[in-house]
Design a protein around this nucleic acid. Sequence first.
DNA 1: AGGTCTTTACGACACATGTCGAATAGTCCA
DNA 2: TGGACTATTCGACATGTGTCGTAAAGACCT
Lengths: 106, 106
Amino acid sequence: MPLGRWTPLRHPEIDQVAIDDVLHALADPTRRRIVRMLIADGDRPCGTFGLEVSPSTLSHHFRSLRKAGIIRQFDSGRQRINTLRVAELDTRFPGLVDTILDSAPD
Amino acid sequence: MPLGRWTPLRHPEIDQVAIDDVLHALADPTRRRIVRMLIADGDRPCGTFGLEVSPSTLSHHFRSLRKAGIIRQFDSGRQRINTLRVAELDTRFPGLVDTILDSAPD
DNA sequence: AGGTCTTTACGACACATGTCGAATAGTCCA
DNA sequence: TGGACTATTCGACATGTGTCGTAAAGACCT
């Protein structure tokens, strides 16, 4: 039974991204914080967010964001880099992410 | 053990409304449909929405929307009337509801 | 090759969610 | 008073979620 990092990275086409998934993803403060840090400081590997959750929980949140079409991930050496899909998202759901982030205090 | 309609109606103050609750509430297509019908046709009692869910499920959705601060309810005879808290919501989270509804296809 | 670092998968847990059917309370009307 | 109507609460169920600890895979470095 294989464990560890082996699953191929799947990113949904922007047309396939569902509004329900985006809203659900951004309804969590930890995930919003991730998005905010990506906006502020650009692409970063998973280990550099300094959030107060365990590595496995963090991994779970990155998967949620990826499956919701909010971030893109690619491997670089032993780290996995996270990128925001801002332009794509804003084409599909104009103003949505910004409006949500402006509405949230955290 | 008392059943039926007896619980006093609680509406959160607009300042107490949490963004997480709003996003979560609007992440459900049935609840978005309710909001849309309220925008389109104005205040209406619970029984006039014609959605394909059971009465108890519908009641559950109305409670979600009420606790999220999205609707207000008051009793009138044997019906319970639903009102959107649009103005209040737009003060607290400018543009949020409209942007979400514009982003959703249903 | 061996050790370390980064990140994930798996299993488990408590808790929340959407759904329904049945029972019930309040209101209106005959 | 008795019946019909509206909407809710309760209990149950399957499913999903956020959380963690542990084990493992892949990449880098010595």
